[in-house]
Design a protein around this nucleic acid. Structure first.
Lengths: 209, 209
DNA sequence: GCCAAACTTTACTCATGAGTATATTACGCT
DNA sequence: AGCGTAATATACTCATGAGTAAAGTTTGGC
């Protein structure tokens, strides 16, 4: 039997290759969308604009996503996944709860300054239909609950001063999210450095020690 | 000369009254816009919707503002004015720089939970033309510089731990702005109570003392 | 009571942009 | 070679919503 016949399930057989290629392109569409949304805003970005940026036409985009909303949702999802990865890493790195919280926060800061940061932070649920809005709420809540849990654990293990976990989580998330508003790609400070400085303020507080 | 002739500039003469009435209505339009934008988002609020909420029609709105953008700008302005008022009050109340900063922050938190909070925090400059966008930038910068100045003064007078004023101002503003995202009018905690709790975290930090 | 100004409405225009039906091209497979 | 499928493009439809012109309505001043 010839090596080129269809009975040869090569790792990169035609179908497989095509499907990888497709995923790759889909991700390119999502990334371009994230950048466009961050620059001009969701409502000010038409899919024709986006298509032009990708050197394709609108129907091509519709072959990768079902709607503009889905595009926005995917951008959001990509960003949140980075944050959720921070929780996993915090578990593997270990340390007391405050240290784990800071690991998460560092990841968070980096995610927020990345390509999907804007979509994550600025996404207004009013722009999405009920079903998607609910998904977003869940994801946001997951992150929020994760932060609160770490804070509660910190209070329990003595690594965090006794405080209201809800307020502390919101304050921290707010400060971190806000980075997306003021950070520019060519800032003097790298995302890591920004994270360190912001987190120091949270650890030590403003009052002299 | 008769007392009723036009030469009598009575405190509530016709013209004066009408102009007050006009200002009152204009403010009602702006307030209704702020609420509608906060609920449904700027782009999802049509001026027909807004007009309906006010029991008038679109052209009436156009007799009070020149454009939808102007409406958004006015909402922003109203909100920022409340914050700037906080700086004045901090001056009159006095105290060390950290105390003055906390006075401003308390005002800030209350402004952000108010009717114009959403517009202040979520306003995306991409929605505005160059000229207005520049005005907004200036106002935002005024607030930011005000915060930084207080922080620098605090470091100088020893009431604030030595830190990067830019980062501290952004972290504080972020935490406060974020309140607008999660606070709901019927929250268990009043804006004042929220302000106290969030500011405590900033003063004392998360690490045990 | 009548006039003029301010105010408000009815009934449009017009541009934009999401989404789609249909044609065309490219490419792997036998 | 040539068939079938996936990918992309052309060329629309259609709804929405900002903004406006012109006509009606109210109100205060005489």
């Amino acid at each position: 039997m010839k090596a080129t016949s269809r009975s040869t399930p090569l790792p990169w057989s035609g179908a497989d290759l095509r499907s990888r290629e497709r995923d790759w392109k889909r991700n390119a569409v999502i990334l371009a969308a994230a950048r466009a949304f961050a620059t001009r805003g969701y409502h000010n970005t038409s899919l024709d604009d986006l298509a032009a940026a990708l050197n394709v036409t609108k129907p091509t985009i519709y072959s990768y996503v079902d709607s503009k909303e889905e595009l926005l949702f995917e951008c959001f999802k990509h960003g949140v996944d980075q944050i959720l990865a921070g929780f996993s890493e915090a578990e593997t790195r270990g340390g007391n709860a405050r240290e784990r919280l800071m690991t998460v926060a560092r990841h968070y800061a980096i995610a927020v300054t990345g390509d999907f940061g804007w979509c994550m932070v600025r996404l207004e649920e009013e722009n999405l239909d009920k079903a998607m809005s609910a998904k977003i709420k869940t994801l946001k809540s997951d992150v929020d609950q994760g932060l609160r849990k770490l804070i509660r654990q910190g209070v329990a293990d003595g690594s965090i001063r006794s405080c209201d976990p809800k307020m502390a989580a919101f304050a921290l998330a707010g400060a971190l999210n806000w980075i997306a508003h003021w950070h520019r790609a060519n800032d003097a400070l790298s995302p890591e450095e920004i994270a360190i400085r912001v987190l120091e303020i949270f650890e030590l507080g403003l009052a002299p020690r």
